[in-house]
Design a protein around this nucleic acid. Structure first.
Length: 420
RNA sequence: CGGGGCGUAGCGCAGCCUGGUAGCGCACCAGUUUUGGGAACUGGGGGUCGCUGGUUCAAGUCCAGUCGCCCCGACCA
């Protein structure tokens, strides 16, 4: 991509509405824009980050034998009535009627819809276990949306649901999903912890949350000083001591909840009569698990965890572009030619690269590069004219080194390989 | 929904107390000079001051209502 053609409206001043740093930076870096309270559009840069997170989620879930499906965003009231949640769910569930006066809701979560898909498709225990997932927009009419993408009403979420004949089998998948989640957040370059949690409105008996550590996080995580067990505040408040070692000493840290995994048991499968025939020919209600990841929230959390006073410091795996080539003087033909050639070379090597070919002053390009947070800057500037070298700079560490024009691609590739 | 704050150009703000027909910085457009850390000069474009009603000769400014947005709380992936 050439920056001169890119829709990326960066701002010097932070809009008044944004208070926390991820919200400010996503607006300033031109990632996303507000449409109404709790509703946001993604601009090209923001969408690239989302797509990268989604790609990592897909790869890890597919590797864990999950299958991707797509359910409609809108669910008929009849399914929710069957589970009993039409009455239980509050105004957070956005309901409406179609022209025939049939009732529907925008899906905030999809246990009913997926269980319906399952019961229409599976009759035998031989098809189990099976785990289905989707990545799409969810809608929850939050009492108070806040902090931009951190708590929006429409948001992108990956939700997965597993079906099993036995609790033991559910247990195996639950643990496999926990492991997959650790890999996902690690690959995204995020420091996440898995904590014991309360299962809340979704129901079920066992659940764990994945928290990205950040001082601005909405949630409080308690770490047991006896055995290092991590749990969310609600769990400890209920029992007042560590459920594992009985210690009452805790250290408190703040976190952003980006994932939640549950063992649902037969909560929904019994309500919706999702059963299979066992090997004894006996109808058996299936065991279920469900597993969510807030994709758009993960993007916000990544900014909270990786930024400085200049802007965002994207982890390489989820950066909108890995490398930006900054040509400081667009009137200097040698610089322009070198920048373009380097850009073409990197593109052919399948490196995500953007060429800042705008006819603006060097300062603007530097500031934008720091703000948007491309992990690596390759600067073709005055040192190029003088010594024929290109400046290699890392956004995170600000480490800078001059590399000859001929060696720059090799240097970059070595750096990228060692950082993976 | 309770408490607090805010709506004036794309973004940040002043003007409101004390009414007289809208201004500053940045951004944007044109030209000239610039080109390593948000350049300079000159000349431009852009606002029914959130909306509705009222008071007044006259309302961005005063009064009433209403809508929207943000923060704290209750609630929540």
């Amino acid at each position: 991509m050439k920056f001169s053609q890119l829709l990326c409206p960066t701002l010097k001043d932070s809009p008044r509405e944004a208070e926390i740093v991820s919200h400010q930076l996503m607006l300033r870096a031109g990632l996303s824009q507000k449409v109404a309270s709790g509703l946001y559009s993604y601009l090209p840069m923001g969408l690239r980050v989302i797509k990268k997170i989604e790609a990592i989620v897909r790869e890890e879930l597919d590797a864990a034998n999950c299958q991707e499906v797509a359910l409609p965003l809108i669910t008929p009231a009849s399914l929710w009535q069957e589970s009993g949640r039409w009455a239980k769910y509050g105004p957070e569930l956005l309901r409406f009627k179609d022209r025939h006066d049939n009732e529907f809701c925008y899906g905030p979560t999809f246990e009913e819809a997926i269980t319906d898909m399952f019961r229409q498709s599976v009759q035998s225990y031989k098809a189990l276990p099976v785990t289905l997932y989707q990545i799409q927009n969810k809608f929850r009419d939050e009492i108070r949306p806040r902090f931009g993408l951190m708590r929006s009403r429409e948001f992108i979420m990956k939700d997965a649901y597993s079906f099993h004949l036995t609790e033991d089998c559910l247990d195996i998948t639950y643990k496999a999903m926990e492991a997959a989640y650790h890999r996902i957040f690690k690959r995204c370059g995020l420091d996440a912890v898995c904590v014991q949690a309360d299962s809340g409105a979704i129901g079920g008996d066992v659940s764990a949350e994945f928290m990205i550590r950040a001082d601005t996080g909405e949630d409080e995580v308690l770490i047991c000083q006896g055995c290092q067990l991590t749990a969310n505040k609600e769990v400890i408040e209920k029992t007042n001591h560590c459920p594992k070692c009985n210690s009452t000493e805790f250290k408190s840290v703040r976190g952003i909840e980006v994932g939640h995994i549950f063992k649902l048991g037969t909560l929904y499968s019994s309500a919706l009569k999702a059963s299979v025939l066992s090997d004894l020919g006996k109808p058996t209600i299936v065991q279920m698990g469900c597993y969510g990841i807030g994709v758009s929230r993960t993007m916000a959390a990544a900014i909270e965890q990786h930024h400085d006073e200049k802007g965002i410091k994207w982890p390489i795996a989820i950066a909108p572009y890995t490398v930006t080539i900054i040509v400081t003087n667009m009137r200097d033909e040698a610089m322009v030619e070198t920048g373009l050639a380097l850009y073409e070379t990197l593109k052919h090597q399948k490196i995500d690269v953007i060429l800042d070919d705008r006819s603006v002053s060097a300062g603007v390009k530097f500031k934008d590069a720091e703000l948007i947070g491309f992990p690596i800057q390759l600067v073709i500037g005055k040192q190029f004219s003088e010594t024929g070298t290109i400046e290699y700079k890392e956004r995170d560490t600000q480490d800078t080194i001059n590399v000859s024009k001929d060696a720059i691609v090799g240097h970059l590739k070595t750096k990228l390989e060692t950082s993976n």
